[in-house]
């Protein structure tokens, strides 16, 4: 316990130690987990349902059609094998974006529980990190369920499939963190629809999820490089198909880009949360 006394002697009480960020993050996770228990069943159903739907419709349906005349760029893969890692990354991106939008706005604006939390010793940064950690747990659950479905569909080619799970989670967090920063500047969900329509959906379509980006007109290909989702899709694909060793540097670039966006997002979010919770 440090005792601080300022020049005019106003700070006269001993200053108690604060809990570490890690301990406060754990409290946020505990809180979110308690809330989650009530929606667990519905969410588990969709965690398995979405990959089953996608892999059936696109992987088997569209894949059956594509595989009649296999494209050389598939390099001997079935379309289902090519598609699965892309849809994994894209699904986690959507879940990570959603988690950063509505539940966060709820805590700041609707039931205001983040304001209630801020009346305890917690800091704004800890609220951001705790929520991010909770989203990471949710995205891990979604990725694990997805991977189980991939194996069940016989679309896995490498034990590195397991390594695609953290890669997918990192892809999701690269969306969660910056969107959380944005959400803390909003008072209504009005702009979320536009964000999904003009941000998330185009990324979903143009980031190599359904086809190699080389199939796009060369003018559009650079879009992939600035799309965080493309980095996630390509990373997950190289891991799930066991081809990461062919270009390890590219794999590292993918990780660095996704981690970099996540860190910048956290820095921005800690500022926008602080601004929102501390009434200027």
């Amino acid at each position: 316990m440090a005792t601080l006394t300022d020049a005019r002697g106003r700070t006269t009480a001993p200053v108690p130690e604060l809990a570490s960020s890690l301990a406060t993050m754990a409290r946020v996770i505990e809180h979110r987990a308690l809330q989650y228990r009530r929606t667990f069943r519905a969410s588990l159903f969709s965690s398995f349902g979405i990959p089953v739907l996608f892999l059936t419709a696109m992987g088997l349906g569209l894949g059956g059609y594509v595989d009649q005349n296999p494209d050389p760029s598939l390099a001997g893969l079935t379309y289902l094998q090519f598609l699965a890692p892309g849809v994994l990354a894209a699904t986690v991106m959507q879940a990570g974006s959603f988690e950063a939008a509505y539940p966060i706005l709820g805590g700041l604006q609707w039931n205001k529980i983040f304001h209630a939390m801020f009346a305890t010793p917690i800091r704004a940064l800890d609220i951001v990190l705790g929520n991010l950690a909770w989203v990471a747990i949710r995205l891990t659950m979604i990725s694990v369920a997805f991977s189980i479905v991939v194996v069940a569909f016989g679309a896995s080619r490498s034990p590195l499939l397991v390594a695609a799970i953290p890669a997918a989670v990192l892809t999701g967090l690269a969306f969660t963190a910056p969107i959380m920063a944005f959400t803390a500047t909003q008072r209504t969900p009005d702009r979320f629809a536009a964000m999904f329509r003009f941000g998330i959906t185009p990324l979903f379509l143009f980031s190599g999820t359904f086809y190699p980006i080389e199939s796009l007109p060369s003018l559009l290909q650079p879009i992939a490089w600035i799309s965080p989702l493309w980095h996630g899709v390509d990373l997950c694909r190289r891991l799930m198909l066991g081809t990461i060793d062919r270009d390890p540097l590219l794999g590292l670039i993918h990780v660095a880009v996704l981690a970099g966006i996540t860190v910048l997002g956290v820095v921005a979010a800690s500022r926008t949360f602080e601004a929102r919770l501390m009434k200027g």
């Binding site: 601080l4 700070t11 200053v15 108690p16 604060l18 809180h31 809330q35 009530r38 039931n111 205001k112 529980i113 304001h115 209630a116 801020f118 009346a119 305890t120 010793p121 917690i122 800091r123």
Partner: peptide, 21 residues
Amino acid sequence: HGPQIRARLGVVPQHDTLDNE
């Protein structure tokens, strides 16, 4: 020392901030 002070306060805000879930 905002967080340290808040650790020793009990706050009843003007509008309820209970967790409805």
